[in-house]
Each structure stands twice: as structure tokens, then as C-alpha cells.
Design a protein around this nucleic acid. Structure first.
Lengths: 339, 339
DNA sequence: TCCTTCACATGAAACGATTCATCTCTCCGG
DNA sequence: CCGGAGAGATGAATCGTTTCATGTGAAGGA
């Protein structure tokens, strides 16, 4: 094995200066005379010195990373959000640790524990359910936590969300306007605030409609393509009387799964069954039947969440904010009455 | 601001024991008597103590994380690989830091610098180009580095790859067998080994074919949907004599982009132009025209890479290995002569 | 009674960087 | 020639753990 990294002392010896000076070269180079600086840099490259971040962090008490906990890395919605977060973080010299909770409270908890031990500067999280106290504990210890893609408590926390009630209403209203009277909402688990609100928004549209519309719910265990396929199979197996005329899925991954299963079962979209998704991920437009979806400003969501987090870490007396963006319905073939 | 976290000493005082004992409760609980252990645990929860990982790491000299550097987090291929890595890492109590190089050598370099400062246990990387020495430096400092999705130097490093030459050949052979005589390879940048080898494999098939096949190249700046759309626009603008009869894309993201642009321009797939992609991401099967693609064992790739990394960190005298998986052609509508 | 074990518990010495009060020069004005 | 200012350099103290050699007290055997 190669011997371990040289430390700052060895660099100091080699450059013929004190350790304090080496540290200054690293952190406040303007305090060091130019020739000394050069000598130190030469020593650093000669020895292949790499600063030990844990020592630095221990002394300074602050890390240079933020944590981002998402429900599903495989969902392009979240990777787009992550890109927004990363953009802003990198610009401020911060690294992003991307964690995956898989919609699983236990994985979420262990991720949060890890981030807490790391003393990250802050955490962005789309929580699986009502927090188990870990988020509150983190905040109490002085680590800012910003919720994204869901609303938070205005007094205690910042949050960035997209109006899911409105999104749900837009989707359902569109289906009602297109003549659908039997709509099936596909989504779950209900612990996710997004799922509940998208459903409630749809319900809202149904209740305020003059028409007599039936809204039912098909619960799924997760929001991914596999769960969508399973739901699609269930739908395809329904009797003619049960069969809805339109399906509103809580996100696009589900919708793509449903679409695949329905097509496989010989049902035509949109002629036999219309589908509306949610998120408008890039793949929605490229699907077998281009998917009608509710578009959210994904990168902007991430960037804004990161901005709020940074504000909370730097501002002296910080006012918690709730930012809410408006979603937008994008109509494509999967819900068009006729082509 | 809430005062900072209590430390192990405060816990010790509260529990009426020494700091060494608290540390033992945390790390080797079997060494401490049950009632003491309980007292310490009570103190820990009462104070809300969270272990400071930088101090731990500084002392131990080892972190409990590994780094994973991918070309593009937005590409489902890499998130699937990441899931495989994560699975195995979590099972060994390790956390994964997911970094994004965006096919950009500078971002890659700064990510590697960061991981080096963090003293990660190891790094899994799909390098952008021939290494700039940073990988070698990392390895020299004692941090194992495993390459994935590309072959490495058998003497110095472990790697896990899928046979891209074979994959390229399979794709091209399939097109040749389907009667195509003018094939366009779409991909880039050429610094990526994957791109070069997939092309070379295709070229190989063309050269060994009895038929008189023309293989041209359309270089793209990246391997994402946007680059694919741009390439598609270029193809759609070609004169009848230039127009190929089939397109082989270096990955599915490109292929989906090309498909979108061609469809938009009024060209029919596969009647006017066949398309073959690479990776067989989940969205390939769900595309407007289900995409023929070369399937790679994505999760397995990640898991195996992580296994090799762990082996390298634990085994005393470690033999570097080159694992190579075989890809598989999945034929779908986008390259079928007639439906 | 004495000695040996055994089971815990202890606390001081690292780990490697940062920080800051202190020191050393050099230069310049009077 | 002296005093003071200012620019750089210094090095000891510090951050919070882990580790390990050492200490203590009780139990058991001779």
C-alpha cells in the first residue's frame, strides 16, 4: 500500500515555513508574501499534498456540503430538481450529497442521521410523510432544513412547492371538459402530501363541476413505472361497468407504466381510455402516446430551494418563506378526444 | 441560533462515566456492562447527542463513504447503475456520494478533488477521457479507484464494463441483416471510450459484411436528449442522396431525441428511417416508437463495480480484475422492416 | 489469607487542520 | 540613533473523537 497522504506539517518542513503559514497559503493567500507562497505551492505539488477535510471541518465546525434527500433518484423529475440545486450550490463552492429515500421512512431516517453526523450546512428534503421528529431535531441543532415539493409550516420552516391542488384541478377539469364522466385517480402511498393534494385538487374540480362526474381511486404502493404497470394491469382487468374513461396519475412514471400495460392489454389510448400524468418529465412527450401532463418548473424548484437554504445559513435574522409556483397543463395526444 | 450539538464529554458527564466509556458504547457496546450502557444511552437521547463524524474520521483516518462519478445523472442508465452501487454499499454500512461530471473534464476534476479531500474509501468512476493523472494520484495515495462502463489497464486497476465492441457490432449487424446499406452513427464526444468502441464495433460489422454498406458518423457534443434532437434536425435537413436509411445512436437518450426530431419533421420511423439505441433504459420500450436497443445489465454493473471496490479495500494482496459483461440486442418497432 | 483472573472503566495521547496572540524584521521619520 | 508602524511569520491551543495501556474491585481457587 502507498503510504498515506502527507500532512500540512510535512509541507511546512519541506517549504521551510511554519504550519500556520501553509494554512494561510491555503485559506488566506493575500496574507502571505509572494515568494513564500510560491515555495509552499511548490512543496504542495511536490509532495502531492491533499488537505484533510475532516480535520478542517472539525476545527471550523462547518462542512461545505448540503444534503438533498429525494424520493426516487430514478425519477427524472428529481434529477432535474437536483440539477437546479447543484447549479446554485456549486456556484457557492458547496457540494451536494444526493440521498435516496425510496419513499421509505426508514431509509429517509438513516439518510438524515448520516447527514446529521456529517454536520452538513443544510438539508433539502422531500419528506416521505409527516416528519418523525428527525427534521425538527436537525433544525434544533442549528441545521437549516428546507422542504421542497411540499408545503411546510410557515412559522418554522422554509419550503418551495408547486401548487398541487391547482395542478390536480387543472388535470381533472381538462378531463371533465373533454367529456369524461368516470375518472380514476391512480397514486400512492397516501402518506405523500403530493399524492393527497393532487387527488384533492381533482376532487375539487369534480365537486364544483355541473356535470355528474365519478372520481374513484386506485392506490399504488409507489410512484414508479413498475407500480404503474401493475395498476394498468388491474385497470385492464376491470369489467366494462367498472372501467373508467380516463385515468389521472399522480406522476408521469406511473402514467408511463399504466400506458404500457394498457397498450399491452389491447386498450387504445386515448380512444378507449384517456391518460393524464403529472410532472411533465422529458420522457412524457416522447412516450408511445405523448402524455398530457401537469408541468412543474423542476430546475427552478431546485434552484429556489437551494437559495432559501443559503439565505437561512447566512442571514442573521431569517424570515421563513413559503414559495409556491404555479403548475401548467400541457395537453398532448393521451387525452385528446380525436386526432 | 440553537447552541451547537453537545459532544461526547457532556454525555459522559451526564451519564457519570468517562468519555472512553461513551465511545465504547457507541463502537463496541459488548465491552460495557448493560446498566452502564443504558445510562449512557439515556444521556445520549436526553441531550440529543449526534456523533461528530469529522472527529471520528480524523482519528480513524477512514471515512465511511465511497464516491460515484457518473457522466450524467439525468440519464436513467446511470441512476440504475447507482442503485446497484447503493444496494451493495448500504449493505456494508457505507454511504454513496453521487457526483456528476456532465461529460466535462473540469467538473470531473473538481469532483475528484473533493472526494480526495474527503478521504473517501474508494471511487467508482466512468471517466470522461483518458485520465488527467488525478485518478492515478488518488490511487497512489491509497484510495482504490474502479472504472465502470469502460475497460481499464489490467495491471493497475479494476474495471467493470460491457463489451461495447460487441454491442456496436450487434446493432450494426442487425441493421445490415434488415437490408440497410446506408447507416449513420450518431454520437460523441469521441473522447468517451464508450462512443469510440460502439462505433468501432459497428464499423467492424460493416467491414466484415458481404454487402456493400456505407457507415458515416454524425458527431454530437453530448449524449443527451437535446443533442439527439439537434442531430435529428440535421438528419431531417439532409438531401435525399445524403439521407441514411438507418441511424445507430451511441445511447438511448440520443436516440429518443433523434426520434422526436425526425417525427416532428414528418419522417416516419422505421419506414423512412430505422433507429437503434444503446443501453435499453426503461423509457426505450415506452417511446413513441418502441426503440430497438442494446441492453446492458445496469444494476449488475453497479453492484459488481462496488464489489470490486470493496474487495480492493479489504483484501490484503489484491489482484486487479477486468470484468466484462455481454450486451444483448433487443429488437423493437424502431428497426422492424414491417409491422 | 493471598494470588490470579476477569470484567469493566478510565483518561491521556493522538489525528491534522485553523486561528490568533505574539514575535521578528525592515523601513522611515524625527 | 531611537521609536513606531506595518508586513509577515510563528507556534501553541483547539476542535471531538477513538484507542490503548493502565487501574480498580470483586470473585474464585489454593
Amino acid at each position: 500500500m502507498a503510504r498515506s497522504s502527507p500532512n500540512i506539517r510535512e509541507v511546512a518542513v519541506r517549504a521551510g515555513v511554519s504550519v500556520g503559514t501553509v494554512s494561510n497559503v491555503l485559506n488566506r493567500p493575500e496574507l502571505v508574501a509572494e515568494q513564500t507562497r510560491e515555495r509552499v505551492h511548490a512543496a504542495i505539488t511536490a509532495l502531492g499534498f491533499v488537505r484533510n477535510d475532516s480535520a478542517r471541518q472539525l476545527r471550523v465546525g462547518q462542512s461545505r456540503t448540503i444534503g438533498l434527500v429525494v424520493l426516487d433518484v430514478a425519477n427524472p423529475f428529481f434529477t432535474d430538481v437536483a440539477r437546479g440545486v447543484e447549479d446554485l450550490a456549486n456556484r457557492h463552492g458547496l457540494a451536494v450529497i444526493l440521498c435516496n429515500s425510496d419513499e421509505n421512512p426508514q431509509k429517509e431516517a438513516s439518510n438524515l442521521d448520516l447527514l446529521a453526523e456529517m454536520r452538513v450546512q443544510g438539508v433539502l428534503i422531500n419528506p416521505v410523510d409527516e416528519s418523525d421528529g428527525r427534521v425538527a431535531a436537525l433544525r434544533e441543532r442549528g441545521t437549516p432544513v428546507v422542504l421542497f415539493d411540499r408545503c411546510g409550516d410557515p412559522v418554522n420552516e422554509c419550503s418551495v412547492a408547486v401548487d398541487d391542488l391547482l395542478g390536480g384541478r387543472l388535470a381533472a377539469q381538462h378531463l371533465i371538459d373533454s367529456g369524461h364522466r368516470a375518472i380514476l385517480f391512480v397514486g400512492g402511498p397516501a402518506t405523500l402530501q403530493q399524492v393527497r393534494e393532487r387527488h384533492d385538487g381533482a376532487l375539487n374540480a369534480v365537486l364544483t363541476s355541473d356535470a355528474d362526474v365519478d372520481l374513484r381511486v386506485l392506490a399504488t404502493p409507489a410512484l414508479n413505472v413498475a407500480a404503474g404497470r401493475a395498476a394498468g394491469d388491474e385497470i385492464a382487468a376491470m369489467s366494462a361497468s367498472e372501467l373508467p374513461s380516463a385515468v389521472f396519475c399522480a406522476n408521469d412514471m406511473l402514467a408511463l407504466g399504466v400506458l404500457q400495460a394498457l397498450t399491452y392489454a389491447g386498450l387504445r389510448v386515448p380512444q378507449d381510455l384517456a391518460i393524464v400524468g403529472y410532472d411533465d418529465i422529458d420522457f412524457a412527450a416522447a412516450a408511445a402516446v405523448p402524455l398530457t401532463s401537469v408541468r412543474q418548473p423542476r430546475q427552478l424548484l431546485g434552484r429556489t430551494a437551494a437559495e432559501l437554504l443559503l439565505a437561512e445559513t447566512t442571514e442573521v435574522d431569517h424570515e421563513h418563506q413559503q414559495v409556491v409556483f404555479e403548475p401548467e397543463l400541457v395537453v398532448r395526444d393521451s387525452s385528446r378526444a380525436s386526432r
